[in-house]
């Protein structure tokens, strides 16, 4: 998946442009991609003396990331969480990741950052800059569900459904890394997801059908 190039940060007043040094460091740091580094070189401003001060983000900042594979921009404050950026600030809000506890304990906001499950409520949106973010909206192709989604439906793996996107993302990440995951491994992967309706047996039944089937 191609990631968007690192954009310039905007600040409301006296906006400092990113220096060549910061720009390159950032681009190299967020994406271990030679292509991206070359793009950064080509786009970088002419070299000058190194800046004495650290880069600072203040006021509205433009964050660019690959959201479900699509280059996406969102303007947020640096204190905005990724969850709020997705649900509230995007031009097309993505509300698949749910805000429930907002304290990193329930897992309803689980999304994949560079394919690793994270709590979007516990991650600043600026941390997603230049990276890949995957949400439950990005799983299906048109009407065709992924195996995890299909089996969640087939196993009746939900009641109220609020926790469901989080479980689906945690299980998706687990099964992408390990298509032969055991039920114990699936349960380990979902330790950070809470279902207060208590649908765990059906959730893991769904996961195990995918793991055994191996078709995703």
């Amino acid at each position: 998946m191609k990631r968007p190039p690192r954009p310039q940060a905007r600040t409301s007043e006296a906006s400092p442009t990113l220096s060549r040094r910061t720009f390159l460091k950032g681009a190299g740091g967020v994406a271990a991609s030679g292509v991206l580094a070359r793009e950064a070189l080509a786009n970088a401003e002419p070299s000058g003396p190194p800046r004495a001060d650290a880069e600072v983000l203040e006021g509205p900042v433009e964050v660019e990331f690959a959201l479900n594979g699509v280059a996406t921009k969102v303007t947020v404050e640096p204190r905005t969480t990724l969850l709020n950026a997705l649900r509230v600030h995007l031009e097309t809000p993505h509300t698949g990741a749910k805000e429930v506890c907002d304290r990193g304990t329930c897992g309803a906001c689980t999304v994949l950052l560079d394919d690793e499950p994270i709590y979007a409520c516990m991650t600043l949106a600026v941390r997603a800059h230049g990276r890949s973010v995957r949400t439950v909206e990005g799983l299906a192709s048109g009407d065709e569900l992924t195996a995890v989604q299909r089996e969640m439906v087939a196993s009746d793996g939900m009641m109220c459904g609020f926790c469901t996107p989080g479980f689906v993302m945690s299980m998706t990440a687990c099964l992408e890394k390990n298509p032969d995951a055991t039920e114990q491994e699936l349960r380990e992967a979902c330790r950070g997801n809470l279902c207060r309706c208590g649908t765990y047996p059906h959730v893991f039944e769904a996961g195990m059908r995918v793991a055994r089937g191996g078709a995703r």
Binding site: R21, T22, A54, E55, V56, L57, E58, P78, R79, V126
Partner: peptide, 16 residues
């Protein structure tokens, strides 16, 4: 107000 500093070196970080 709120600022997010992104230092590139340890010296920059400690100075902030």
């Amino acid at each position: 107000g709120f600022k997010l500093f992104r230092p590139a070196t340890l010296d920059e970080a400690v100075a902030l």
